[in-house]
Design a protein around this nucleic acid. Structure first.
Length: 422
RNA sequence: GGAGAGAUGCCUGAGUGGCCGAAAGGAACGGUUUGCUAAACCGUCAUACGGGUUAAACUGUAUCGAGGGUUCGAAUCCCUCUCUCUCCGCCA
């Protein structure tokens, strides 16, 4: 969430940026400032009164130990009177703090300076593209047909075991999937990311920390018996590794990677674009997360973009990089780049990675901070990106590399998969 | 699932009503000195939110798992919750 002192000092800027993001409820900004004023006033009153209580209490202790009971009794009455005032002030202070917090979490992150204007996905800006869109041979089919033809994925079996959107990978399909995971992780760790294998279920505090709660409650699977949430992305457990921690500036940047399955209810997205692997409830993803010095987050962002782009180049997939317009970015992001690969058989672009800089928006919630030269703790910046999400990569690999003789495996992947052809 | 123990600062760990924001040791950081892959000594060593200041200094409040209660006063007593550990059971 945004920081109140920043809002106070940069009110016009905040309003302008929020409007740019197409955020309607601009009155919340005034509300936040008014509540903060009230909070300060009440804090002052409470602290002053409590200070009197504390000092009187000490006196009473002294008087009692000196045997001056009557004087002590008199002081007691004075304290009682003060405390009568304290209760209501405290109640109001708590209510004000809660109202302030509730208002604050309504405000999305501010779009960074480079973010293009716009409201819809059509207004996203193509930054660059790469790779070559293949000319498929006449018998080319979409991946769901290939999956059946080569016995790689059984969608119907998933329906039986669980429900729709839970594909079963088998034979060479399962192997290819495993090869990709291994390949991605190796690529990430080679480039300085520390590998983690985190839990796939998280508690409420973690889900709140990265912003899934309260905004996206309905999108996560919820194990109500124990009140755990199935992770929608490794971002949640991995970023929370440093929740409530103060690290040394020399520890930065912190670069982490993790492979996990991801679980998403995708409520309300039935019908369109859900065929085959395009949109599923459980999928595998390798994620990268960075915690960096606030001055370095845009540098880190560029590095992550280059990192993901290089991966797509090595997989020889045609891709394009989009800078999301203000209205299409997520609630918590300051700037987001989407990576899409071209599915030649479906003739459309599929999103396979999303790389974002959250600046201090997430870390302010999670209180992830660092200390520089024994100074005051400051918030670090957090970034994350997929490198990469498996299903759509798999779909494109199958579709784009299909030939009459079989499906070709990209060179970079061959040693992991164990063959040059499916 | 059953029984028990516990939750204190970066770590270990003392503290059972006022002298405790908290002993001691360790780690870390800064320095002095000496010096060969280091030791000794000195110092620093929680956070948040206020007041104050150009900025500091200074100062108030809160925090000893979380929330509530008793009391003039609570890390210390009471209640609730959460979590952790140990043993038993079950099991990969």
């Amino acid at each position: 969430m945004l920081q109140v002192p920043f809002i106070r000092q940069n009110k016009e800027f905040v309003l302008e940026r929020l409007a740019f993001k197409n955020f309607k409820d601009l009155d919340v900004v005034e509300e936040v400032l008014a509540l903060d004023d009230k909070r300060k006033k009440l804090t002052l009153e409470y602290d002053d009164t409590q200070a009197q209580v504390n000092s009187l209490s000490k006196e009473i202790g002294k008087l009692m130990s000196q045997g001056k009971k009557e004087e002590g009794e008199a002081q007691r009455a004075a304290v009682a009177a003060l405390k009568e005032r304290l209760g209501p002030v405290n109640d109001e202070l708590n209510a004000t703090e809660k109202a302030l917090h509730d208002a604050l979490v309504k405000l999305p992150n501010l779009p960074a300076a480079m973010v293009p204007a716009g409201k819809t996905p059509e207004e996203n800006e193509e930054v660059r593209s790469g790779g070559k869109i293949p000319d498929l041979y006449d018998g080319a089919v979409p991946h769901w047909d290939l999956a059946k033809q080569y016995d790689l994925i059984d969608f119907e079996l998933g329906n039986k075991i669980t429900g729709s959107g839970f594909p079963v990978f088998k034979n060479k399909g399962a192997r290819l999937q495993r090869a990709l995971i291994q390949y991605f992780l190796d690529y990430n760790t080679t480039n300085g990311y520390t590998e983690y294998a985190p839990p796939y279920l998280v508690n409420e505090a973690s889900a709140y920390g990265t912003g899934q709660l309260p905004d996206k409650e309905g999108q996560m699977y919820h194990a109500t018996e124990d009140n755990y949430y199935l992770i929608p992305t490794a971002e949640v457990p991995v970023t929370n590794i440093y929740r409530d921690e103060i690290v040394k500036d020399t520890d930065l940047p912190i670069k982490m990677t993790a492979y996990t399955p991801c679980f998403r209810r995708e409520a309300g997205s039935y019908g369109k674009d859900v065929r085959g692997l395009n949109r599923v409830h459980q999928f595998d993803k390798v994620e990268i997360v960075q915690l960096v010095h606030p001055d370095k987050s845009f540098e880190a962002l560029d590095e992550m973009i280059a990192h993901v782009e290089n991966l797509l180049n090595q997989l020889e997939l045609p891709y394009r990089i989009l800078r999301l317009c203000a209205g299409d970015m997520s609630f918590t992001s300051a700037i987001t780049y989407d990576f899409e690969v071209y599915s030649a058989a479906q003739q459309k672009w599929l999103e396979v990675s999303s790389v974002s800089n959250f600046e201090a928006y997430q870390t302010n919630r999670m209180k992830i901070r660092f200390k520089e030269n024994n100074g005051k703790p400051q918030l670090v910046h957090s970034l994350n990106g997929s490198s990469l999400a498996l299903p759509r990569i798999l779909a494109c690999l199958l579709e784009n590399n299909q030939t009459a003789e079989g499906i070709q495996v990209p060179t970079a992947l061959q040693s992991y998969y164990g063959s040059h052809m499916i």
